[in-house]
Nucleic acid binder design. Structure first.
Length: 267
DNA sequence: AATGGGACCTGCGCGC
DNA sequence: TGCGCGCAGGTCCCAT
């Protein structure tokens, strides 16, 4: 799934390629992912505008444009972005520039979304987002958990609590910090929270270095896979032996999401 | 405040 | 070989 490291990878690659390019055409063989605006209106707004910058907030990409508007791209579950000349499989919408390859929004399940907004900071998705895990201190991280009585795993995946963490990195971080995914957040000791913070930071940074995890449809804008997948310790490994104690990992649904963990190491 | 369920979607793997 | 079924999950929305 495209989570913080995957979206960060895409963001860095788009920054390198798209800044100062002018959009000259918008193709939309499947415009269902365009959400708050009609296709003709989107075209009218985008054509002849220049890309000023590309930033990431949580799992969202924000493209700022010379007409003072912002394109918000969200890949959800099955979306990916490609820079290519020829239309790729599952291409839904493509932005064509005055030079270089097109930016193609591909999405097998059509759950991703494209929006055009005047001010990205007022969009609910962005405005309600919790802090960036790589931008807060250990103390700030610990303070977030005060009075939180919910299960730790869905809490980590709650974008309003902390931004950018999804099903892969929540499971990986809980394994590394030896915390059972069903633990209630307010029962975690300071020591455990420190361990969780360190695990998250290390895992997210390492995953960014690896250009993300290509567990499902995600790939880099070049089409290459992210290689963090081979560092996964628990994600989608139910039944396989724990890397630490060899006990078979448990696969269990928690808050409606598949979750793998070690019943011995994670307390 | 927290939890649960359904909807959105479709490719894919499975069992028969 | 072919078909039908159910799973995968990020976000949103509604109900309890």
């Amino acid at each position: 799934m495209p989570e913080l490291p995957e979206v960060e990878t895409i963001c860095r690659q788009l920054k390198k390629s798209l800044i100062n390019k002018t959009i000259i055409q918008v193709d939309a063989p499947d415009p269902r992912i365009i959400k708050n605006i009609s296709l003709p209106n989107l075209r009218k707004n985008l054509i002849k505008t220049k890309v000023i910058n590309v930033i990431r907030r949580g799992k969202a990409l924000i493209v700022s444009l010379s007409n003072k508007k912002f394109l918000i791209l969200h890949l959800r579950i099955s979306g990916w972005l490609m820079l290519a000349n020829k239309p790729q499989e599952f291409m839904r919408v493509a932005f064509v520039f005055d030079s270089g390859p097109s930016l193609q929004f591909c999405d097998s399940r059509v759950l991703g979304r494209i929006e055009l907004v005047d001010d990205f900071e007022t969009v609910d998705l962005i405005r309600e987002m919790g802090p960036e895990p790589l931008e807060i201190s250990q103390d700030q991280f610990i303070a977030l958990f005060k009075d939180k009585k919910t299960k730790i795993k869905p809490l980590l995946m709650d974008q309003k609590f902390i931004a950018g963490i999804g099903n892969i990195y929540a499971q990986e971080a809980l394994f590394v910090s030896k915390i059972h995914p069903q633990r209630l957040a307010n029962t975690l000791s300071n020591k455990e929270l420190i361990s969780l913070y360190q695990a998250l930071i290390n895992i997210l940074n390492k995953a960014i270095e690896c250009h993300g995890s290509s567990a499902d449809t995600y790939r880099q804008v070049s089409g290459e896979n992210g290689t963090y997948t081979k560092h996964h310790l628990v994600y989608q490994k139910g039944g396989q032996p724990c890397k630490i104690c060899k006990t078979p990992l448990i696969s269990q649904e928690i808050a409606g999401r598949g979750t793998c963990f070690c019943p011995v190491c994670q307390k």
